[in-house]
């Protein structure tokens, strides 16, 4: 019984060192699904809602708008599509493990990329609010001696965001894999006296991993997506408030 915990499988390599892995394929599939879902949800909207589809679409938009209003205030209204995108992408990525796809958020590159986007947003919002000088001055507060710590703190934001998402998803999948392997070992140990293929019947792998998967994939996945967008909104609105 070999247990292997590795990153995404490399499907093929392109020149310039570009590798196409399972992560990319999963991401494309997820993007396609989200795009089609959006298109399907909004394909014939009416002023008086007649279909349940439209109610769902409006509920999604309104929920995100209300959340944004609560956390960031009215002036970040244009931020809503980004937050919705981020949430949808993270949720679908976390749940894609359920459908046998490789979860893009279990790849550090993906979460790091998204966290870098969020970091750029935080930075640009901060600079837009305080100006470059104000931002650089903010790094030296409260005293000049703290500047290295502040710089590290600035960079810790995207790193911790990326690591949080990645760590949660990966720990879920690692624990699932380990448990699965352990249960396989247990069932083959229990059934080892039986002849032939009967020894390979996975009696323990049937129910227990499903329960764990509900926690790690569904609950934790949605929760981490929520936390990711909440942190994004909190950081950006914090950056927008001048010091």
């Amino acid at each position: 019984m070999e247990v292997s915990i590795t990153g995404a499988r490399v499907l093929f390599r392109l020149p310039l060192g570009i590798t196409i892995t399972e992560t990319q394929v999963s991401m494309w599939i997820i993007m396609l699904v989200i795009g089609l879902l959006c298109k399907w949800l909004t394909h014939d909207l009416k002023v008086k809602p007649t279909s349940r589809r439209q109610v769902v679409a409006e509920t999604i938009v309104n929920t995100i708008n209300n959340l944004l209003n609560d956390v960031m205030g009215v002036r970040f209204k244009d931020f809503a599509p980004f937050v919705a995108t981020l949430f949808a992408f993270v949720v679908f990525s976390n749940l894609s493990g359920l459908f046998g796809l490789f979860s893009p958020t279990a790849d550090l590159n993906t979460t790091l990329g998204w966290a870098i986007v969020v970091f750029i947003m935080i930075l640009s919002t901060n600079i837009k609010t305080n100006g470059v000088g104000g931002y650089l001055k903010g790094l030296t507060e409260p005293v000049v001696f703290f500047t290295p710590l502040n710089v590290i703190g600035e960079f810790a934001t995207p790193v911790s965001m990326a690591m949080r998402l990645f760590g949660n998803v990966l720990s879920g999948s690692v624990i699932s894999t380990l448990l699965y392997a352990g249960l396989a070992t247990l069932s083959s140990f229990v059934l080892q006296k039986l002849p032939g293929f009967l020894a390979n019947i996975p009696i323990f792998q049937l129910g227990i991993p499903a329960i764990l998967s509900i926690y790690f994939d569904v609950f934790s996945g949605v929760l981490q997506a929520f936390i990711f967008i909440m942190l994004t909104m909190a950081y950006v609105s914090n950056a927008a408030s001048s010091e």
Partner: peptide, 12 residues
């Protein structure tokens, strides 16, 4: 890969 993740996010 990181760049592709960023690009995918922006496209989405």
């Amino acid at each position: 890969q990181t760049l592709m993740a960023i690009g995918n996010l922006i496209i989405l």
